[in-house]
Design a protein around this nucleic acid. Structure first.
Lengths: 196, 196
DNA sequence: ACCTGAACACCGTTCAAGT
DNA sequence: ACCTGAACACCGTTCAAGT
């Protein structure tokens, strides 16, 4: 960061992403403007276009990085000690923690506008989702989970968690997140139909 | 609509809401601008402010009307013939149909930004959610559903459906909506833990 | 290669003034 | 009561020109 190199920022791309995520957290997507981002970083308002084709491209990268981090948290929970169902519950808690720590980012991750999903984003999603699917497959081997395509069961679980995250974030209910999550896990595990 | 009354629109408020929903469906929230709406209707760009404090107020009303219609569809499904579990499945299908018919509206309905929810919207939500809760309560009486606070079980079901709708709308998965929904209903009904 | 400055076509919101 | 027109302070995107 010599005085000479202040004209060329050096790593404007990373700086934009970093600042964008901070702004997203503080003021939400609607409050995020490329011009303000550029101002914050101290660069002209036209500079970002060198690194992101348009605003949506920057948002797509934020979403992709979100899925990468979510995938990491999944992986940590999946490789913990204990029976599969315990680890699945750990993953569920990791999901909800991520959702509550990054509510605006999560909304961005699952809002696909009417644009085609970028290959980058798609790869991050597949990578993240693969973790619970694998865990479910090993749960089936251990006889802890019913038979069936682990991919389909995994997607069902992710959908359930995403729903909990959405409801928690919408404050349409007074139940706290932990209780909602426990209810969901319990009912999805044991079923709503009474067991004999 | 006499020539004399063209200056005063007459029912600008309704016209704005109607046009806004059509635009929402066509180009999404991001493509929705008050100025364009005013232009479409043939009124000055400042006119909408008489009827909606700001853009968010109009979006809130759209969301509220969404919940009202969703509640109606719920009520229809709830009062159908057959056992409770059948009617719950009918409600689930109604939810997903609504989600697929109004993807942008649904996103709007569940995206609460970081603003306080308007009382109007909150009332619509409570009204809509009350339907599945009541159905679950009668399912418990019939012995078709496990014991527990019907409100909490109902919220769990809605979360599950909302999650399915989100995943279907995000096109992160290739599974079609019906299959995803059937999987969710089956697993939530019977549980992921093997039954003896 | 990377950034600037000006330009273009938009926004939401406000407010005196008109009917 | 309801709407207009002008004004203000913003946007995203593009593009010749600078270093």
């Amino acid at each position: 960061m010599s005085i000479r190199s202040r004209y060329h920022h050096g790593d404007l791309r990373s700086a934009l992403l970093e600042r964008a995520e901070a702004t997203l957290r503080k003021v939400g997507v609607d409050g995020l403007s490329l011009r303000q981002l550029a101002r914050d970083i101290g660069v002209s308002h036209a500079a970002p276009s060198r690194h992101f084709r348009d605003k949506q491209a920057l948002l797509d990268e934020l979403a992709a990085s979100g899925f990468e981090r979510l995938g990491q948290r999944f992986a940590e929970a999946a490789t913990a000690e204990g029976p599969v169902t315990e680890r699945l519950y750990g993953m569920a808690r990791a999901y909800l923690r991520f959702a509550m720590d990054n509510p605006e980012l999560l909304a961005l991750m699952f809002t696909r506008k009417q644009r085609s999903t970028s290959p980058d984003l798609s790869a991050s999603v597949q990578h993240a989702f693969a973790v619970p699917v694998a865990l479910i497959a090993s749960g089936q081997e251990a006889g802890e989970i019913v038979a069936g395509d682990p991919k389909r069961i995994g997607i069902t679980c992710i959908a359930a968690l995403q729903g909990v995250a959405t409801l928690v974030g919408s404050d349409f209910t007074d139940y706290d997140a932990d209780q909602l999550l426990r209810d969901m896990v319990r009912h999805l595990t044991d079923g709503l139909r009474p067991r004999p």
